[in-house]
Design a protein around this nucleic acid. Structure first.
Lengths: 230, 230
DNA sequence: ATACTAAGTAACTAACTAGTTATTTATTGG
DNA sequence: CCAATAAATAACTAGTTAGTTACTTAGTAT
């Protein structure tokens, strides 16, 4: 960015036209444009689903020309797959930041349940994107080659915590890390995903701050009771 | 159906034209047509969401004229709200069939977890309809007056089971029936709703018969451990 | 019987929507 | 410095899509 700091003296003469009536200063930032399209698309797909999202609306929100979407992603579906890759990549990356091996097994579980919960709260688009993809029975995820490679180091993390807990005598032996991890996701996912209909059905504001805090505490309790020795 | 059994002798002369080249025998069955539209719409909305479903496709599937949809339901959204009412009404009705008071508290919980699980398996459209409605932040459910009245006698059922268990000394006191019920729904809903992406992510067929049976058993265990005294 | 109302049909339309075409403009390697 | 290439734009198009219009036909109350 600071390369032509001294107003293009060194490089070429035509740098910085500076004419106020010029047709339009058209900056060319391929990566930035691509990124803006991805961000806009994530928001639109998350808000309206694949069928409900509009390519024109994505272009408008991204402040990009619609043609650029087809240039970078080929089609609406190609863009959707890119968003999926991006969303799964982001959560896997966040999981890698967790340093659970340093913690006592019980604390590691508490931290993991809390992380999962907070991730869903801070990235609500993840929930609706996953829903959308399941509506299509994972048709698009199957196409993505990136995701299979990410697989789930998380499962190995959970396995490791469970083993340490069993060794320490605090956890029950024989628990399947996949079932445990699915349950950790479940108690957060279902509540947060269905909090809108839930608030009506149960006649209670499930979105209220206290309700959210209460649910996280309840979820931690649920998971610890599932895992810990009697 | 057997009213004009003797070929319209008694009633009016024009009954049963019987001409093979006649314009078309057009039966008029308002209720049946309405029902066919509802069934077709439920399937389409569940498969493709509100935005993805097509009014023409619903009419075709229902073997009804598209105009009839507007005649009975006013608009695509009106039809969607009718489907929502129908879907929630159906699950509430099924819940009423459960006779949990006859059972020992622990068995009542087992039966409830199993019922919830089986209902989701046998009525997968319920899951996607609820997802769709949460995508729209319950905008349409808020319009429905029917659903609020159904409220949830289920919560009272759960409260009653919990109280009996506490009295019997087998359950922990102080548990919130809403949290417990949400958790029962969560462990089934999340697994079944996300089994398509989950099968890829975890590289394991979550739809396989044994996987489903195993998960139900795990869920019962999770809920009992949450509720039972140590 | 007959007027009235509800059920049903076919063809139409205005607005929308994913994807394209044709063209211009900035950047970069030789 | 200039040809090749990549980024960007505006206007267009062919096919959909929710909703309508104008009309016919079957029951039903009087």
């Amino acid at each position: 960015m600071r390369v032509t700091d001294d107003a293009g003296v060194k490089t070429s003469g035509k740098a910085v036209p500076a004419k106020s009536a010029a047709p339009a200063p058209r900056p060319r930032e391929a990566d930035a444009t691509r990124r803006r399209i991805l961000d806009a698309a994530k928001a639109e797909f998350a808000r309206l689903g694949l069928a409900g999202a509009r390519v024109d609306a994505i272009a408008l929100r991204a402040k990009a020309n619609k043609r650029m979407i087809y240039h970078y992603f080929g089609s609406k579906e190609g863009l959707y797959v890119a968003i999926l890759d991006d969303a799964y990549g982001a959560i896997r990356a966040a999981e890698q930041q967790l340093k659970l091996d340093d913690l006592a097994p019980e604390d590691a579980i508490r931290k993991l349940v809390t992380f999962t919960w907070n991730y869903f709260i801070r990235n609500p688009e993840f929930l609706t994107l996953v829903n959308t993809e399941n509506l299509y029975r994972a048709r698009y995820l199957k196409k993505s080659t990136v995701i299979r490679e990410l697989h789930t180091p998380l499962i190995e993390m959970v396995r490791s915590i469970l083993e340490r807990g069993v060794a320490a005598g605090t956890f029950r032996p024989g628990l399947d890390p996949v079932q445990v991890n699915l349950t950790i996701a479940a108690v957060g996912y279902h509540y947060l995903n269905n909090r809108f209909t839930g608030s009506i059905i149960y006649d209670r504001d499930l979105n209220a701050r206290e309700a959210l805090d209460e649910r996280l505490a309840f979820n931690i309790e649920t998971i610890l009771r599932l895992i810990c020795r009697d």
